[in-house]
Amino acid sequence: MFSNKDIAQFANLETPFYYYDLSLLQDTLGACASAAKAYGFHVHYAMKANFNEVLLQKIKETGFGADCVSGNEVKKAVEVGFSNAQIVFAGVGKSDREINESLDQDIFCFNVESIQELEVINELAAKKNKTAKVAIRINPNVDAHTHHNITTGLDENKFGINSWDLPACADMLKQCPQLEFVGIHFHIGSQITNLDVYKNLCVRVNEFAQWFEERGFIVRILNVGGGLGINYHQPEAQIPDFEAYFKIFNDFLEVRSNQEVHFELGRALVGQSSSLISKVLYVKNGKKKNFIILDAGMTELMRPALYQAYHQIENLSKREKGIAAKYDVVGPICESTDCFGKEVEMQETSRGDLIGIRSTGAYGEVMASHYNLRENVRVAYSEL
Score class of each variant (00 low, 15 high):
254 E>K: 15
131 T>N: 13
144 A>K: 08
209 A>E: 04
270 V>L: 05
72 N>W: 07
265 L>G: 03
262 H>N: 10
337 T>W: 03
366 V>R: 06
254 E>V: 10
134 V>Q: 10
150 I>F: 02
155 D>F: 04
57 Q>A: 13
358 R>T: 01
332 P>C: 07
354 L>M: 10
27 D>I: 06
297 G>T: 06
73 E>G: 00
114 S>M: 00
318 K>C: 10
259 Q>S: 01
266 G>T: 00
321 K>G: 12
196 D>Q: 12
292 I>F: 04
44 H>Y: 03
299 T>L: 08
156 E>G: 11
304 P>Y: 00
54 V>Q: 14
223 N>V: 02
191 Q>C: 08
102 S>I: 04
193 T>L: 13
365 E>L: 15
276 L>G: 11
106 D>E: 09
115 I>F: 06
123 E>V: 10
164 W>I: 08
12 N>W: 01
209 A>K: 13
286 G>W: 02
70 S>K: 07
55 L>M: 13
65 G>E: 06
100 N>L: 15
79 E>M: 12
79 E>A: 13
347 Q>M: 11
35 A>P: 04
32 C>M: 04
225 G>E: 06
228 L>E: 02
264 E>T: 06
373 L>R: 12
111 N>P: 03
214 E>K: 14
346 M>R: 11
188 I>H: 03
317 S>F: 01
333 I>A: 12
111 N>H: 15
335 E>N: 15
361 G>M: 07
342 K>L: 09
97 R>M: 05
114 S>L: 02
202 C>F: 04
148 H>E: 14
355 I>R: 00
124 L>D: 00
129 N>S: 11
53 E>G: 00
241 D>E: 07
146 T>Y: 04
377 V>S: 14
280 V>N: 01
347 Q>N: 13
190 S>M: 10
337 T>Q: 12
374 R>D: 12
274 S>P: 00
163 S>I: 14
222 L>Y: 07
204 R>T: 09
280 V>M: 11
295 D>E: 04
166 L>N: 02
144 A>R: 10
353 D>M: 04
225 G>Y: 06
140 P>H: 12
348 E>N: 13
212 F>W: 14
56 L>W: 05
148 H>T: 12
46 A>F: 00
168 A>C: 01
265 L>I: 15
122 N>C: 04
29 L>K: 00
181 F>D: 08
144 A>C: 06
183 G>V: 10
25 L>W: 07
64 F>H: 06
221 I>D: 15
28 T>R: 07
44 H>S: 12
245 Y>A: 02
339 C>M: 14
185 H>Q: 15
344 V>Y: 05
355 I>M: 03
334 C>H: 15
219 V>P: 08
114 S>E: 02
120 V>M: 11
168 A>D: 11
380 A>I: 10
332 P>Q: 01
285 N>K: 15
207 E>H: 14
138 I>F: 04
244 A>V: 07
3 S>K: 07
